[in-house]
Design a protein around this nucleic acid. Structure first.
Lengths: 207, 207
DNA sequence: TTAATACCTTGATCTGAATCAAGGGTATCA
DNA sequence: TGATACCCTTGATTCAGATCAAGGTATTAA
């Protein structure tokens, strides 16, 4: 833990460390310097739904600074990570004295609202194969539209992200392989039929 | 349609009128003056998921002003409504010259992120009876903790809000009645066992 | 006030995906 | 590097809730 500019703090975490918990009071924002974190909800019986995955440059934990004080979800590292913590007062001072910064913040929150809209649509109106196809297409876009995409998280985490179970992920990957859409390796997927994937992600049914 | 302050416009809608559609370009924000509107997503086969219901005083349609240009969802009136439209330029001018207004906007977007977090949790980690119980408890809180709550929307709309079908809503209301938790009338619900409802909303199973 | 439209309910059936079970594979950190 | 915890897969079974079907009841707009 190293003090930056007299106020911000660098926090160093191991893989799997908790950064904050659902319901905790939030007194500042977090910025990923290195590593990767997830923001997620847990059910009483231990099932998990991932809301966001953030990497270097992303800020998170703002909601309680602007509204309602407590965190609406928990957050944990997915890899060893360095996280900058900026206390509430200093952050609010920056925001209120820098109009451009506040517009950036409004844009960032809007981006997340848009992402949540898509996630709610997927959970409510689409089935697992469509959600999985959409995720693969998103990865492809993020990775220069490559036809070989790298899975940035384990398949178990992926199941928590798209709202299903590891067993179902495994079966759907198999079906999508049988259908000639993709070819799955341990940490990589080859896209064989992008059009087919797009159709599946929009409405399609498998087989 | 009446011009306000030379720039804002009052729009008058009948029940069931479309205000904007998913994918349209957004060039300003909307404020509900009177009436009630829903913001929702449609699937290709016509199923609907409601994201928000807004009444007098609420603003909506901000996301494309701050990020990405197009609306992430559609919006329609649920009753005859008057809506104020404030063009993008005028709104951005107000926001950038009034720090308090921009903080209010950040708080409003944060409130919606919190609400979406709860909605994703509900869709992914809870079953229909728990979602329905949570909705009844929310209504009760909004209505002075009364044990007789008024349903502000039809049961068909309610099914689109909590992510199920009218048939299932009907059956679950019946089961919750049989279990002695509530008594359902056409437009009103009496809460008979608030503790039981809370337990059901958190984790419980019906029967 | 009366069509017309939307809304609500109940029953029968179907199905996507969860759960339960179990064996083998793969990383990681002490 | 060896142990341990996690990860992945496949099969059998179960289940919550969707869909299909059909009749009755409210609202609303003309």
């Amino acid at each position: 833990m190293k003090i930056l500019s007299g106020i911000a703090v660098r926090l160093t975490f191991k893989r799997g460390d908790m950064i904050f918990q659902d319901g905790d009071k939030g007194n500042g924002i977090y910025i990923v310097e290195t590593g990767k974190i997830k923001v997620f909800k847990l059910s009483l019986d231990g099932r998990e739904q991932i809301l966001h995955i953030f990497g270097p440059g992303h800020t998170f934990g703002e909601v309680p600074v602007f509204q309602g004080k407590s965190f609406p979800a928990s957050s944990m590292t997915l890899e060893p990570s360095d996280i900058i913590f900026l206390p509430r007062d200093r952050f609010v001072e920056l925001i209120t004295t820098t109009p451009a910064l506040s517009m950036n913040m409004l844009a960032d929150l809007s981006r997340r609202l848009r992402a949540f809209t898509i996630q709610i649509e997927a959970l409510s109106l689409k089935e697992v194969p469509a959600r999985l196809a959409a995720y693969i297409l998103t990865l492809s876009k993020e990775q220069k539209n490559s036809t070989r995409v790298r899975l940035p998280i384990s398949k178990a985490q992926l199941s928590n992200l798209i709202g299903t179970t590891p067993e179902t992920i495994s079966r759907m990957f198999k079906k999508m392989g049988d259908a000639g859409l993709i070819q799955v390796q341990t940490k990589t997927i080859d896209i064989l039929d992008k059009e087919g994937l797009i159709e599946l992600s929009e409405s399609g049914r498998l087989q």
